[in-house]
Design a protein around this nucleic acid. Structure first.
Lengths: 226, 226
DNA sequence: CGAACGCTTCGGCCGCGACCGAAGTGTTCG
DNA sequence: CGAACACTTCGGTCGCGGCCGAAGCGTTCG
C-alpha cells in the first residue's frame, strides 16, 4: 500500500486554506487565483503557493486566460474523493458535482465576472451570430448595422461597444464548452439585463435567476427558452 | 460546504505515521497499538497520541481486550474514503511504480476492507457480469436466476445476498482503476473463499495468496488464470 | 508609452504539531 | 506479592510549513 502518497494527498487537503479552495471548486466551476484567495481567507501570495502545490500534485488543473488563471478540479476523481472525505466528516448526503437544483441553476445562467455564461450566455452569443448581428474576428469582432439597431432596441448604447476591447472572446465555459459573450459587449449586455430586472443574482452563488419578465423577453427578442 | 471538517479529516490522513496506521487497517483487521506503532515507525507514546486522535475523530474504533487495545477502521466509509484518496494518488503521472514480489502480490489479489480487490476482484466482477449472473442497477444490482444457481454451487447462501445493502458497488480499485465487487455479495464471496481456503492472508499486508486449490477453482469456475 | 492589475517568487518570521524521555495507570503473569 | 507488559499522560524540544511584505513578471487598458 502506498502510504506516503496517501499522507501526501491527505496533507494537501488537510490545510484549512487549501480545504477552502477545494470546497469552492466542488461544483465544477473554474475560478481565478484571486477569487480563491478571497474565499480561502489568505493573501494572494499564500494562495499562489497553495495553488501551485495543488496543481503540482494533480488535484487541480489550470487554464491561462489573459492575465487570469482559472483553477478547477483536475479530474472527477478529485471531486469524488472530497465527497467521500465529507461523508466521513459527517456531512450531508454526498453532493456529486453538477447535480441538484442549485447546480442546475448554475448551468442555466450564471455570471462570469461581468458578463453572462451558462446556457444563457452561450445561447445569446449563438443568436447574435446566427442573425449576423455580430461578426467575429481574430481579435474581437464587429457589430453589424442590423446588430446596432437590435442593441439600440435593447438600450445598449453604441459607444459601449466601441473601443479596442474585444466584443466576444472565447471565455472558458465549463458546462457548455463553447464560447460566450465577454468583452465590452458582454459586459454591457449583462448590465442591461440586470438593470431591467430580467435577471437576478442568487445569494452566495454565481447562479442567476431568470425573472418572468426576463423569460418573456428572452423568448421574444432572442427566441430562447431556457 | 463544510471546509473546516474537510481540513480536519485531511490533516488526520496527512500525517505519515497516521497514514501508515490507516493503511495497515485497510483490510478490516483489528490490530493492537503496539503493532500499529511498529508499522508506523514511531514510538509507543507517539502512536498512542495518533490513535487517540484518530479515534476521537471517528476514523478508528477501539476494543479493549485485557491489556491490549485493538484498533480498527470505524466504518466502511473510512475504508471507502481511503480507497478514493488512493485513486487520486494514482492519478499523478509521476507515480511511484510498484515493484518487487510483494507488491506484485498486492496487485494480484488483496482485500479491500471486507471484500476482494486487485486483479482477482476485478476479474471476478467481470466474469459474473459477462455471464449475466449479475446485472447492475443504479443502486446496487440483482442476481439473476442463473447467478443464484452459480452462487449456490459456491456455497454462498441466497439470504447472504438479499436485503437492502447493495450487491455491487463501484468500489474503485487503485491498481486496476476499475470497479470490483463490494457490498453484501462481495463480502459473502470473500468470506467463502477464505473459508474454503482458496485464499490466504499474508502477514502484515493486504495481499492474498491464492492456494493451489484456489487456483484450480478459479480456473474451473471462473475461467480466471491470474 | 506608463499605470493598473493578476499572479508569482523570494525571504524571513512564527506557531502548530510530531516526536521522544520519563513517569504513571492498568493488566497479566509467576 | 513484584515483575513484566501494554498503553497513556506529561513536559519539553525542534523542524516543517503556513503566512505575509516586498519585489518581480506578464497582461491589459487608457
Amino acid at each position: 500500500m502506498n502510504a506516503p502518497r496517501l499522507a501526501e494527498i491527505g496533507s494537501l487537503v488537510g490545510d484549512q486554506a487549501r480545504a477552502n479552495i477545494l470546497s469552492q471548486l466542488m461544483d465544477g466551476r473554474a475560478l481565478t487565483a484571486t477569487e480563491l484567495g478571497f474565499a480561502a481567507g489568505v493573501s494572494a501570495q499564500t494562495t499562489s503557493g497553495h495553488l501551485a502545490k495543488l496543481t503540482a500534485s494533480g488535484l487541480l488543473a489550470v487554464t491561462k486566460q489573459g492575465r487570469h488563471r482559472y483553477y478547477r478540479l483536475a479530474t472527477p476523481h478529485v471531486a469524488r474523493m472530497i465527497e467521500h472525505i465529507m461523508v466521513v466528516a459527517g456531512d450531508k448526503p454526498a453532493r456529486i458535482p453538477m447535480h441538484g437544483a442549485r447546480q442546475e441553476a448554475v448551468r442555466t445562467a450564471r455570471t462570469c465576472y461581468d458578463h453572462l455564461a451558462g446556457r444563457l450566455g452561450v445561447g445569446i452569443a449563438d443568436v447574435l451570430l446566427a442573425r449576423k448581428y455580430l461578426v467575429l474576428a481574430a481579435d474581437g469582432g464587429e457589430v453589424t448595422r442590423a446588430g446596432a439597431r437590435f442593441l439600440d432596441k435593447l438600450g445598449v448604447e453604441p459607444e459601449a461597444v466601441s473601443g479596442r476591447r474585444p466584443f466576444c472572446r472565447t471565455c472558458l465555459d465549463w458546462t457548455e464548452r463553447r464560447p460566450h459573450l465577454a468583452g465590452k459587449l458582454g459586459t454591457a449586455l449583462a448590465a442591461r439585463f440586470f438593470e431591467r430586472r430580467w435577471l437576478e443574482r442568487q445569494a452566495g452563488s454565481r447562479a442567476l435567476t431568470v425573472t418572468p419578465a426576463g423569460r418573456r423577453m428572452l423568448r421574444e427578442l432572442f427566441g430562447l427558452t431556457l
